[in-house]
Design a binder for these strands. Sequence first.
RNA 1: GCGGCUAUAGUUCAGUGGCAGAACGCCGCUCUGUGGCAGCGGAUGUCGUGGGUUCGACCCCCACUAGCCGCCCCA
Length: 464
Amino acid sequence: MTESKKTPARPTLKAVRGTRDLLPDQTPLWNHVEATARALFARYGFGEIRTPIFETTELFARGVGEETDIVSKEMFTWEDRARAASEKAQSLTLRPESTAGVVRAYIEHKLGETGQLQKLYYIGPQFRRERPQRGRYRQFWQIGAEVIGPQSSGSESPLRDAEILEMLASFLDELGIRDWRLELNSVGSSEDRVRYNAALREALQPVKHLLCEDNQRRAETNPLRVLDSKDEADQDLINALPKIADYLGPESAAHFAQVLAALDACGVPYNLNPRLVRGLDYYTRTTFEFTVTTGLGTQNALLGGGRYDGLSEMLGGPKAPGIGFAIGEDRLILTLQAQAEADAAAAQVSSQNTGENPGAPGPASGTWVNGRPKLDAYITPLGVAQNPAALALARELRAAGLTVEVGDGTFKLRKSFDIADTLARHIILLGEDEVSTNIYTLKTFSTGEQIKLPRTELFKHLAS
RNA sequence: GCGGCUAUAGUUCAGUGGCAGAACGCCGCUCUGUGGCAGCGGAUGUCGUGGGUUCGACCCCCACUAGCCGCCCCA
């Protein structure tokens, strides 16, 4: 009878709902995506900005919009303690998106005073208290960018809209995302939208009672949202509603036409979607979404964005038109993984059909383990007496830029070989002989070849 | 916030109102300076948590929690 069985049950600690750990077999893909974004954005003249992951609640209330779902029911908000009697408690919130914070920083640091067009990008976690499902987490990552500046900097130019869209198309292409679709719309200026909203309400009035419950509610509270409905029975009625395109003022219409012309010139395909309305209040004129059909289930929006010509002023700043986007990094990763799985399945089928075995392609092949490249060498001390020499050798090899793991002198040789073959391309045996003579025994797994090498030759051999 | 499905070994999953299972992985031995293969052996575990029904519950019922899928909404 041991006492271990008597250990009182204790609740297992777990990551909180909607959050998750990314383990080392996942992070290489994340780093690849982020590195691709950084390199690409740099070519377009973007610089990185890092803003706090929490801000005052007021920023999001004013920036994103009090009436939006995000602000009205999805924020992680808490009252910060007042530290002195004279100090008031402050309501703080984990950022549900980053545009508001970036524009706040633009205002706070008077970036508009430089007169320069600001091109800023960010990569980081966002927080929304929603019910988790595929492609939706309470802590999720966005890769986003903003182009903002005084009007004199050209921030209002349709060229900027097209450049952003073209950059996104290049980004998805470079990552190998297939079959993406760009949905594009213009929601007009805020004045245009007031007129359109009135027209929508008028058109909805006689048919409202025919719509589903959700849409009846939207028709009252926010008619634009009716356009977003997926309710099948309502589709015909919705398609018959007035189109925003017919309510754009001449300036908005001209702006949009120039965006389209530039996209055509770049050869970026798009789908005009008059029903694309987005959930954040600050959008004006150009709005867009890139969607995919693989891997995301019903959360098919990979990224979204739009122009926000009035946001800076809404936050008490100078007039600073801008346009930006946010890529759902989690969704991007899901899509890439789903594509890779589909490819692997297709490869399997085709190899069965041809009767050939093309070998396991990609990261599953012999030079990778768990998504990482195999190490250059695994050093096996033969007996604990050789442990110090093994670590010293590892230190030298690592200093020379080689990737090296060291075994433990207590491991049996068989086990050492097993581990080494799993992790590394070569095994270095370090017994008494090797340590005393400085002639090392090196075996290459791919060929089974085993040779003895002096120290300098060892470096050369491993580096090649 | 609402609805559906699910929760058993490290992983993927079977399972029956009466002894807790498979595969893969892991550990050991065959094999103490030469691995991958093979053979043999072993440990896998509060059967998500708490309650109830029952002589007896991993199984049936209830609640909770979490996950997945969808709605709402969004990235």
